[in-house]
Every structure is written in structure tokens, then in C-alpha cells.
Nucleic acid binder design. Structure first.
Lengths: 337, 337
DNA sequence: CTGAAAGCGCTAACAG
DNA sequence: CTGTTAGCGCTTTCAG
């Protein structure tokens, strides 16, 4: 398992190892003849450059840390896929960490990535407190926050206009005739989710609807959490004709609970999600939802990060993407009285 | 952004930097007093050990490369999640690469990981040819193949007993009265899928059923591919009462096509999947399937890899996990004539 | 155009 | 217990 080094090549080629280094790095200060000869020997010996050694002297690793709450979550894995692709195209590789939606673990992972000398970090934070928590390390390494809208925070982020997302969602439901819409699984610990709830609230106000919230105290939005919350909700008696779920995963959980409780969607109640994860498009699910442009957000995040890495003068920038209404089959028009 | 090094600490503490190194590494050859003093100074100065430098001398990076065809695929992302967790618990971090189901890109990524000096690689290969293709590099770094069953190949892998999986699946459908079962989206380029098809074929033979295959020439199993194939199938006229899909994603695609073609599942035709990805459990999907113990496979893969890394004497080992039938609602009993 | 030497941040003998 | 020295594999001055 002994690896071939630059010195081994030098010995065979009968040159100094500096020359080998130059041949490999495509330096101009070398004769084309020697270069070709050395390159050939390198190939023959099965040489692979040691990126660790290179990083040590170059003081850059060409590594981007990707820190997500859980890669096993359709939203994050879509983001991860596109981040990987964009990064690779720009010559960067990914170091992947899960925070499991846990702020301590998130901090641990962040520090670890710093120690690993990643050139930058893309972070899908687990909540609104991530920023304060990570603040001490934030000028150690360029960081871009994704998805979690941290509003006026002085750090780069890319997110969707969450407020607008729920706003247009409510307008859509309103246009279908719904006058009593519940906002489901509001998570106050996340700024993103605060904004979504607020967009919902503001739209309700503008349309003279009475807002109604079902709060979630869970740290994340999962099918399981949506299910649990919905089960309780369906057991009670409420006056509403539509549910606006804070996330598609929540909506999927609601779908599950509805099925079990004999609530038909969209016949009995309309359901609108947020995120547009790939599974929402399945015809059996067929969930109308608000799309977050994940591909775009991922590549923008990578670009922002690289820009920040290369331009130390740049402090931070915020990019807010446009959400889009995706109409499928989970919302039904209701007759007006 | 200048990082604090061991030398900076040494200067402040007024000791040699070796002493600092010793304090940090928990060596016993140092007075408890000095250690505490140095540790404190390190903390005050905001020191974080440079893992790159450490790796260079230690000749190990504590990094595991995870190479999957696409992280944006429920099966892979579940595997990835559990691999990350197991690895972290053992002090390893993950470097993530996608091959996009493309063998050239897979080779690229593999070489890249080698250059990055990862201590080991966990690979969910994109097909049966991955082994031959990667063979030249395989003794450069300990590697464990996951999911793709490479049979008698002389390299470590962990997989599910694919043959048995489809075998028990057919038995189950048979027990429900099905006598005409189509195997859907057989992929001949993948050994795993060959074995699945074979298990199906052998079960058919044992039960005196006539096997019927729908072949897929796609390089991967996705919803889209299942959908395309199924659309064509449903357009034709065939004699069958059940479909055994080569993968859950294929089954989801079939579900979609069925919906559009007015084929009711399970009323008109029963559908059985393979993998048990999380979305199959959604009540709206409610897919009966063959479970691959993904969590287990992931942690076993990590353990095998670490064992292989630590025990150079070990050549390779194969672990075959047990598949399990998960009965949900997509298969219906049919009356016997 | 090529080589010698220094050094990236850290660990590990080897002395004292 | 502590310091000196060498070296991990590579790039980069600085001479020639």
C-alpha cells in the first residue's frame, strides 16, 4: 500500500524532485521534453498526487463542508445533490456532516470542519439559534447559510422568500373559495418558519380571514411529526376547510393521519404544502405545494461561497429566491355561501 | 483569518512547540501543571488543531470516502445517513461523491478520493462493471462495496440476499393466488439485479409458473424509468395479475403510470416492490415490498471497512443480510379457478 | 531551464 | 519532564 511520491519519480527520472513538481503542476519553467518524460514515468509508476500535502502548503484544501440536519430528508438530499454537482464543477469536493437537527452536534460538526481546513462551509442550519451559536467561529471560515432565512443577520445566506411563499399560497386557497385555513405545524424556533407563518398571517389579514395556527414544538419537520400533530387535530372538532402545511413532509404526515381518520383529501379538506420535494409529485400523493427552487439555491450557494472565499473584502450578501405555486390535486374549490 | 498554530501557543506559554503538541495530544510525558496551563492558553487563543498537518504525519486522515451514484435517491440517502452516523461514532468523517450512475465519473471520483488520502472507501457502485473498472486502484485503499452484490468477487462487500428477496416475494404472491407474475425492469447490467431476476426465475420454476420479464436498459432504477416502462406495458395487452418491481422507485413509477392508464392497484393488479424506501410506507403509497436492512448494512459496511483498514492481513469478506417481506396494501389475494 | 533549501503545521524519536 | 531535530509530501523562492 506504499504510495508513489514525487521523490520516487525523481529518482527514476534522474532529476530533482523540484523538477517533478514543476512537470506535474504545469509550470512553464521546464522543457517540454523533460515534462513529457516525467509525466510518462509518473503514469507508469501509478502516481497520484497527495492532496493532503498539497493542501498543507497551498493553505487551501479545495474542500467545501456541507452541514445539514439530516441527509436522510428529501429536501436536504436534493440540496446536497446539487451542491455536490456545482462544487465538483468548480473543482471542489464535499465533506458531509449531519447535525441531526441538534444544535450541539451542529456546533461540533462546524468546529470539526474548521479543523479539517475546509475552504468554506455551506450550512442548512437546524434553527434560528444556529447563527448565534456559531457566531464565534464564523470569521474563521467563509460560510453560507441555506434555506434558513436569518433576515437581517450579517452573514451570507440564500433562501426562498418564505413570507411570499405562504402569502401566495393563502391567496390561492382563497381563490378556491376557502375562508377558513389552518396553518399547520408552525415552528417558532426557526426563522424560516416564523416567516412562513407571518406570510400566512399577513395574507389572512389582507383577505379578512381569521388566522388559525397549530404549533409544533418539534425541532424539525418530518412526516412523523406531521402525523402526530394531525392525529390530534383530526380527533378534535374544528371549523376549517383547508390546511396549509409548513412543509411537504408535514403534509405527508397529515395525509397519513387523514387516511386513518377517514378524512378525505381534497374532498373533505384541501391541503397545501411547502417545499415541493420530489415525492409530492407522485400521483398518489399529488400534493399542491409551494416550490423552493432547490437546484438554483444550491448552485447559488456554491457560487456565493466561492466568491466569498476569493474576495475577502466581501462581507456578506443575501439572496432571496422566488417561491412558486405548484398546483396539483390536493386542493379543491369550495362553493361560496 | 490567520489561524493560531502550535507555535503561537508555544511562544506565549514560553515552552517549545513539542511541549504544546504533547499537552494537546494527551501524552503522559508532561507535567500536569504545564499541560493545564498550555491547554488554557490554547483555549484563550482560540486554537484548533490543523487536521491536514496531522494527517500528513500520521499518514491517516480519519476520513472515509462515500461514493454513491446519487445522493438524491432515497435508498442512497438512507444509506448515507447511517454511514455518516456510524462513521462519526468511530471518529471518522465523510467525503461525499456522486457518480451520477456514470462509470467514468465513478472512476474519476474514486481516484480523487485516493488522492485525498481517505483511509477507506464505501462504494455503492453504479453497476456490475464497476468492479473491473476500479480493480486497478482497489489495493490502493481499503474498499467496501455496498448493495451491489458482486458474488464471488475478491473484494469486501455487504449486500442483501437479493436472490432470496425475490424468491420469497414470488412465494408471497403465489400464496395470494397469483399465477402470472411479471418481473418488471430487470436490469442486466447490475449483478444485484441479475440476482433478483434469478431469484424470481427460480421461484417461478419451483412453483411451475412461467416467468415473464420486462427489461430495462436504463443505468439506474428511478421513478421516471419505472414510469416510462410501465406506460408502454400498460398500453399493450398482457396476461398477468401481479407485477414484481425490481425496486421501489420502479414501483412508484408503475403506480404513476397505472393511475394514468386507469389500472387500479391492487384491485386490478397487485404490485410488489424491493428495497423498502421510506416513502413506500406512506399510506397513499402503501407499497408491499422486500426490505433491505439499510441501517444494518450501513453500519456493517463501516465496521467491515474499519476492520479492513486496521488489519492489513485481512483480504476481504462478504456479508449477506436477510431480506424481509413487508406486507402493506399493494397486493391482493385473487381467487383460484 | 534545473537544483538546493526552506517551510506549511504537526508528531515522534532521541537526548538531556 | 522538556527541548532539539528530523521529516510527512509537496510548493516555492532563490541561485545557478
Amino acid at each position: 500500500m506504499k504510495r508513489v511520491t514525487i521523490k520516487d519519480i525523481a529518482k527514476v527520472a534522474n532529476v530533482s524532485y523540484t523538477t517533478v513538481s514543476r512537470a506535474l503542476s504545469g509550470s512553464s519553467e521546464i522543457g517540454e521534453g523533460t515534462r513529457q518524460r516525467i509525466l510518462q514515468i509518473g503514469k507508469d509508476m501509478g502516481y497520484t498526487a497527495n492532496a493532503v500535502a498539497r493542501s498543507l502548503v497551498a493553505k487551501e484544501t479545495k474542500l467545501i463542508g456541507l452541514l445539514v440536519s439530516s441527509i436522510n430528508n428529501p429536501f436536504m438530499s436534493e440540496i446536497a445533490y446539487h451542491v455536490e454537482e456545482s462544487a465538483r464543477k468548480k473543482g471542489y469536493n464535499l465533506m458531509l456532516c449531519n447535525s441531526s437537527g441538534n444544535i450541539e452536534q451542529e456546533e461540533e460538526a462546524y468546529k470539526l470542519l474548521v479543523g479539517r481546513q475546509v475552504d468554506g462551509i455551506i450550512l442548512v442550519p437546524c434553527g434560528a439559534h444556529s447563527y448565534e451559536r456559531l457566531h464565534p467561529y464564523l470569521d474563521t471560515v467563509p460560510t453560507v447559510f441555506v434555506s434558513e432565512n436569518l433576515r437581517d443577520i450579517q452573514e451570507s445566506y440564500v433562501t426562498v422568500d418564505n413570507h411570499r411563499g405562504t402569502y401566495i399560497g393563502v391567496e390561492y386557497l382563497y381563490s378556491l373559495g376557502h375562508r377558513s385555513i389552518v396553518y399547520f405545524a408552525r415552528r417558532l424556533a426557526s426563522t424560516t418558519h416564523q416567516l412562513r407563518a407571518q406570510g400566512y398571517g399577513d395574507a389572512c389579514k389582507a383577505l379578512h380571514l381569521k388566522p388559525q395556527y397549530v404549533d409544533s414544538h418539534f425541532a424539525s419537520s418530518s412526516i412523523q411529526h406531521g402525523y402526530t400533530l394531525a392525529l390530534e387535530w383530526f380527533r378534535g372538532k374544528h371549523n376549517y376547510s383547508a390546511i396549509f402545511a409548513a412543509a411537504d413532509t408535514i403534509a405527508l404526515g397529515i395525509l397519513q393521519a387523514a387516511e386513518e381518520c377517514g378524512v378525505r383529501i381534497p374532498e373533505d379538506v384541501s391541503l397545501l404544502g411547502f417545499d415541493n420535494i420530489s415525492f409530492s409529485a407522485l400521483p398518489k400523493i399529488n400534493l399542491s405545494t409551494i416550490e423552493q427552487p432547490k437546484h438554483m439555491m444550491a448552485s447559488v450557494a456554491v457560487e456565493m461561497l466561492i466568491e466569498k472565499m476569493k474576495t475577502p473584502a466581501m462581507r456578506y450578501s443575501h439572496k432571496i429566491m422566488n417561491p412558486e405555486l405548484v398546483i396539483r390535486g390536493s386542493c379543491k374549490a369550495v362553493p361560496q355561501i
